[in-house]
Design a protein around this nucleic acid. Structure first.
Lengths: 195, 195
DNA sequence: CAGGAACGCTAGCGCTGCTAGAATTCCGGC
DNA sequence: GCCGGAATTCTAGCAGCGCTAGCGTTCCTG
C-alpha cells in the first residue's frame, strides 16, 4: 500500500510541476513559447510524459486556466469586501478584474480567450470559474434595477470588462484612457442616486 | 506600356484572388483550415507566389480583415440610417454589429481578435476601420450625456458589444439570452428620458 | 534571333502537436 | 538472492505548419 501511495503522490506532484511550469513559461515568454518540447525540457522529462498526465496541450492550458481563475476570484473578493458602498464595490471588482488582465495577460488569455475545452456557463464548470463569476455577481446584486435579471446583468457587465481589456491588450484601444473608459462603464451600470 | 500594364493588372487580379480565396476558405472551414499550402492549391499556384504578394500569412489575413470591415461598416450604416430615434439607432447599430459577428464569425475574428499587424486607434488605420468606428460614433453621439467624451463613450460601448460576442462565440456565455443581454447593455447606455 | 531579366516552381529547413514501439526500471514471488 | 512480469519512460518518427533559397523556364527587349 505504501509503495502504491508513494507513486501516486509522486505522480500528482509531477502533474503540479507540469502545470506550474506551463504557467510560469507562459507568463514569462507568452503562450507561443509554451511548446510541448520546451515544457518537457523544463520539467526534465521527455515529451510523452506530458501525455500520460494530460490529453494534450489544450488540457494543460485548461489546468493553468482553472488555477489562474482561482487567483482572479480571490483578488476580486478582496477588492469587493474592502469596498464601502455598493457603487464602490462594483468599481473595485471591475478595477481588480481589469488590473488582473493587464498584470497577468498570459493567464487572462488562457482563461478567457484561448482554451476552449472548459465548460463555462453550466453546473459542470470548475468551481474556480463559478467563484470568479460569483464575485462579479455579488458586486452587481446591490445595484440591479427593479425587474432586472441579476445573472444577465452580471454577464453584461462582465462582457463590458472583457471587451475593454481584450481590445486594449490587442492594441485596438489605446492604453492611456483605460481608467476613463472603465469609469464610464461603471457609471452607466450604477443607477443614478445609488450611493 | 500595354504589356507592363497588362502584367500589373493580372498581378492585381491575382492578389484579389488570394484575398478572396482566403476569406472564403476561412468562412467555410475556419481559419485553422487556411494554411499557405491549402491557399496555394486553391488559387492554383505554388506557395511562394503568396509571398510575392504578401509579407506572410498575417498580411493576407490583414487584407481580409480590412475587406471584411468595410462590409461591417456598411451594414451598420444601413441599420443606423433606417432607425428613427437616437435610441433606436444605437440599438440598431449594436444589433447589426452583433449580428455580423454571429453570421460571419471567421471574418469577425480576423478583424477584432486574431490579426495584430493592423494599426487601429491611429490616423494610419485603414479607412474601413475608421468608417466602422465612425458608424458606432454616429450612433453614440446623440445619446451622450453632458460632459461625456463621445469618443471614449463610443469605445466603451464598442467594448461592451465586443465582449458580448466574443464570450458568447467561445462558449463562455450561453447563446439563448443574447438579445436580452444586448438590450441590457443598450438600456444602460441610453440616459433615461431619451426618446 | 540572341541575351537577359522577370517569374514561378521544386525542394527543403526548422518547427509544431502527438504517438508507436523499444528499452529500462522496479516490484513481488520463489 | 534472483528472476519473471508489469509499469513506466525514452527514442524515434509522422504529418503538417510558415517560410525561403535557388534552380529552370518563360517571355520581353535590343
Amino acid at each position: 500500500m505504501t509503495i502504491q501511495t508513494r507513486r501516486e503522490r509522486e505522480r500528482a506532484e509531477r502533474e503540479r510541476l507540469i502545470v506550474t511550469a506551463a504557467r510560469e513559461l507562459a507568463e514569462a515568454e507568452g503562450w507561443d513559447a509554451v511548446t510541448t518540447r520546451r515544457l518537457a525540457e523544463e520539467i526534465e522529462y521527455s515529451q510523452p510524459v506530458l501525455y500520460s498526465h494530460f490529453k494534450g496541450k489544450g488540457a494543460i492550458m485548461a489546468a493553468v486556466a482553472v488555477q489562474g481563475c482561482a487567483d482572479l476570484a480571490e483578488e476580486m473578493r478582496a477588492a469587493r469586501t474592502a469596498a464601502g458602498s455598493p457603487r464602490e464595490a462594483l468599481a473595485a471588482v471591475g478595477g481588480a478584474y481589469t488590473a488582473f488582465a493587464r498584470r497577468r495577460p498570459a493567464l487572462y488569455d488562457v482563461i478567457f480567450t484561448l482554451a476552449v475545452d472548459l465548460p463555462f456557463a453550466t453546473p459542470e464548470a470548475p468551481p474556480a470559474l463559478q467563484d470568479a463569476f460569483g464575485e462579479l455577481l455579488q458586486a452587481v446584486l446591490p445595484i440591479a434595477g427593479d425587474g432586472e435579471d441579476t445573472g444577465l446583468l452580471t454577464e453584461t457587465y462582465w462582457a463590458g470588462l472583457h471587451g475593454l481589456v481584450t481590445l486594449m491588450r490587442s492594441g485596438r484601444l489605446p492604453e492611456e484612457a483605460h481608467e476613463q473608459r472603465l469609469a464610464l462603464l461603471i457609471g452607466h451600470f450604477v443607477p443614478p442616486g445609488t450611493s
